[in-house]
Simulated scan of single mutants.
Amino acid sequence: MTITQLKYVLAVAEHKNFTKAAEKTFVTQPTLSMQIQKIEDELDILIFDRTKKPIELTEIGNKIVIQAKNIVNEANRISDIVDQEKGFIGGEFKLGIIPTIMPTLLPMFLRNFINKYPKVKLKIEELNTETIIEKLEEGHLDAAIAATPLESENIKERPLYYEPFIAYVTENHRLFKKKSLEVSDLDLTDMLLLEDGHCFRDGVINLCKAVGNQEEDHFSLESGSFETLVKLANEDLGMTLLPYLHTIDYKGKDMEFLKNFKEPSPAREVSLIYHKSELKMQIIEALRSTIASVIKGAIAFQNVQIISPINHK
């Protein structure tokens, strides 16, 4: 039994198809099938039920896959140990970032990171939180940047910064004349929200629920971007909440519509997250330190109330 054979098993378990698994592991389908057959013969069991479409794991196959993931992770750790000993920070690194963080944070740190660590080949994907957790658990991402806490036992979280919520309230809105807002001022009945699937949306809903303003059936205007929400607010269709970093480049009249909350300000916790197996920690630490160095000048808020992104339905 070899590490390579175990990787083949994991590929078939994931794709539930020998041909797709062969493509993903860059071998021919007969070669992959033969190697898996060797493991099954050696153990005298069947890992896969080939009579099912798509292919399914047998009961013992499920247990083997769990152990195979552990073994492959530990084998990968050997390379990490060697890289750390040599002080090498490089190689491919797959990073996921949620859509409400990507446009503001990525331009702040990416050039600095590339210049400082030219041997790292970053592959960045914009993904929602649910997909990020799934890909981290399956080993298809090395790390991600997302709003936390996520309450996932397989994911470790290292907070990067705390980003306050800022209200965008136009002049015809009931709250416009207030210099600063309280959480109790919020009401979902006149709140413009991101569409379902965004954790920032869930954070806003959780914030309103905390003060009992949760008549969710009354709102219907939703969008996939903050820019659209702001345009809708400018048409007097409601107010919206924005993450602080999204507002720092606002100018002119738009600045008049931005309102802070009284302390402790509601805020989201933004963290660098990764699998508990802690692979590629030297690159993860390099990312953390790079982001920390650029963000500390942009966010100076301390007295905040962390709003959970978890949507408890």
Rank of each mutant, 00 (worst) to 15 (best):
T4M: 10
V12H: 03
H15Y: 15
F18T: 03
T19A: 12
A21D: 01
A22V: 07
K24C: 09
K24D: 12
K24L: 13
V27I: 12
Q29F: 04
P30L: 09
T31K: 10
E42Q: 10
F48C: 07
P54M: 05
T58A: 09
G61T: 00
V65F: 00
I66Q: 08
A75E: 10
I78P: 01
V82N: 05
D83P: 00
K86T: 00
I97M: 15
I98W: 04
P99W: 07
T104Q: 11
L106A: 08
P107S: 07
I114G: 02
N115P: 02
N115L: 13
N115G: 09
K119W: 01
L122T: 01
K123H: 15
E126F: 00
N128F: 04
N128D: 15
T131G: 00
L141S: 07
L141A: 06
D142P: 12
A144Y: 12
I145P: 11
S152V: 13
I155E: 02
K156T: 07
L160S: 05
H173Y: 15
K178C: 03
L181A: 04
V183H: 04
S184M: 14
E195K: 15
D196F: 13
C199L: 13
G203R: 03
N206Y: 03
K209W: 08
H218F: 14
F226V: 00
F226W: 09
E227W: 08
E235S: 15
L237R: 15
Y244W: 12
Y244F: 15
L245W: 06
L245M: 10
T247I: 05
D254P: 09
K259N: 08
N260L: 11
K276C: 03
S289G: 03
I291H: 10
I299S: 09
Q302C: 08
Q302R: 14
I306N: 07
I310E: 06
